[in-house]
């Protein structure tokens, strides 16, 4: 084999291998790869009932209830199609508020998602306070689905 032919075969081999790997990876994406479940998936029973997982969604406006004298809170998470009740005992992060996107880790117990960790998910938009105020006037819930 001449060196030139060898180089050609090497390049063809690399292209073929990388191409095939890409095809197989694309095939993988046909399947559900998600780790996350949104409230709709939980409501339709797609989320595991016996195992902890992460759920991401928006805290429904007006749903936050605190139990007096304890750290126990409950609220509902929504993706604007379905809602899931969540209960949590512990300190909530600063960014936690109604209408804000959060991620909770825990498991389902009798239709209620019992969280052992709540993380505020903040979006990629940075806004000065006065702009935010005027935006709120113009359109309800300021957060988005990121």
């Amino acid at each position: 084999m001449t060196p030139r032919r060898k180089r050609l075969y090497t390049v063809l081999g690399i292209l073929g291998g990388v191409g095939l790997a890409t095809l197989v990876a694309v095939k993988a994406f046909d399947n559900n790869l998600s780790y996350f479940y949104d409230p709709s998936q939980v409501a339709t029973g797609k989320a595991p009932g016996d195992k902890s997982f992460r759920i991401g969604g928006m805290v429904t406006q007006g749903s936050l209830k605190r139990t007096p004298g304890s750290l126990e809170v409950s609220f509902t998470l929504t993706d604007f199609a379905n809602t899931v009740p969540v209960s949590y005992t512990g300190l909530l992060p600063d960014l936690f508020r109604e209408g804000q996107g959060i991620i909770a880790h825990g498991r389902l117990q009798g239709g209620v998602f019992v969280a052992d960790e709540v993380l505020a998910k903040h979006d990629e938009k940075y806004t000065p306070p006065e702009v935010a105020k005027s935006m709120k006037k113009m359109q309800p819930p300021a957060g988005d689905k990121t």
């Binding site: 073929g16 993988a28 790869l33």
Partner: peptide, 23 residues
């Protein structure tokens, strides 16, 4: 182990195997 079909990760592992065997 949760009784689900694990096609997604398996295909991805296969893709990684092909890529690593090539390069």
């Amino acid at each position: 182990m949760r009784g689900e079909v694990a096609d997604g990760p398996l295909w991805l592992l296969a893709a990684m195997l092909i890529l690593s065997a090539t390069l």
